[in-house]
Design a protein around this nucleic acid. Structure first.
Lengths: 208, 208
DNA sequence: GAAAAACAGTGACAATTGTTACATTACTAT
DNA sequence: ATAGTAATGTAACAATTGTCACTGTTTTTC
């Protein structure tokens, strides 16, 4: 197991990798699985070895607002933050591509901060990059209308999947931007007319 | 100087207070001063002794979206995050009530993490509480219409000032919610009709 | 292969928010 | 006291977004 950890979490020191290997459990989830629900207690810090996870903020009425992706080599900042205080999860995380996760038990997360410089830096860097990502999300909702938010949304998805073909239904996009399907259909049509996308069933092709 | 630090940052250990006292500079700012601008490099972690600061996210067109307050006993999470990586500020911070700040130089922020357990916990707790606050902000914009956002905004301000009389102009509120004054005037009038507020010049009185 | 379910397109209209334009009121400074 | 400025009120209209109703198409299921 040491090898893949070393490969994916390149900044980890040799001793840290050993410690991870010795103490952390590997867990697998399938596409569609919900790893953490809002309100659940978090008992582990989650590191992603393979696959993809989408992180959402939920509201009382069942709304699921998409915030960001978690990818191999990354960790869930919320799980770090909550873990240290044994708090409830403020977010919901759903698997969108089968994942293998390293589950680091709560006490170790804390202990390693003092023992391993590279863990400390990884954690701080995770905080920083997530905070920045969340601030960008705020930008997009606070300063932008739905058409620009949609473009921002599609771009982020394309970046993560590394391709121009997004396998998303209009309904799915609408839910994740907290609007209605009709609005998304309308805006996508306009984008198609402007030559930015080509629309197919369950498939949006980015042309630029 | 030791005394006020001890009093305000109650979780700090005696040794930490000594270290802060010996190494950190105290700096004062007046109401209206901008402490950090977007894009500026951050060289210190900022702790608030007295006064109040408002933290904003800016866009290219001069929009200033209000995110949260910083109050005595709190620290700027962004300044911690950026400091460790010597990054540019992603936010703008404005004094709304004369402040005294402790400026902790970048290298110490890091060093103390290893040396002082109480500093470590303070930093982690700052991350956590800011992250949670920012997630709540996302809720309010992602899931709520302007009328509810306005109520949320007014409530937060009342919580911080600890009073029912908010000294805010409609224009000010509009800027901080990134909408127009007319919209705010309109919504406030409706709230007045519902008996939630009483409107005066530069003064909104919360009735419930 | 027929029925059901999921996906997408679209027109009509409602509600909310943004914009323009101007009036009125209340403070401020000299 | 008066001129000037800042703050607020408000009507009318535009633009965006949300909702409803209905259509057609593709995929899935039995």
């Amino acid at each position: 197991m040491t090898d893949p950890i070393k490969k994916i979490f390149t900044s980890f020191s040799t001793e840290l990798v050993k410690d991870v290997d010795a103490n952390a459990a590997i867990q697998s989830f399938k596409t569609g699985d919900v790893i953490i629900r809002t309100g659940q207690y978090i008992k582990n810090t989650v590191l992603v070895i393979s696959g993809k996870i989408k992180v959402y903020r939920e509201d009382e009425n069942g709304g699921e607002f998409f915030m960001y992706y978690l990818q191999p080599g990354q960790a869930c900042a919320i799980s770090m933050i909550c873990a240290t205080k044994n708090e409830k999860s403020q977010i919901m995380a759903k698997v969108v591509e089968d994942v293998e996760l390293i589950m680091v038990p709560l006490p170790l997360m804390d202990k390693w901060m003092m023992q391993h410089r590279s863990w400390y830096e990884f954690v701080i860097d995770t905080y920083r990059s997530r905070f920045e990502e969340v601030l960008e999300v705020i930008d997009s909702i606070a300063f932008r209308a739905m058409d620009e938010r949609l473009e921002f949304y599609l771009k982020r998805h394309a970046d993560v999947c590394g391709c121009k073909e997004l396998k998303l239904s209009h309904q799915e996009i609408a839910s994740e931007l907290n609007t209605s399907r009709e609005v998304i259909s309308r805006l996508l049509k306009k984008m198609e007319q402007r030559g930015i996308v080509a629309l197919h069933r369950n498939n949006i092709e980015l042309l630029k």
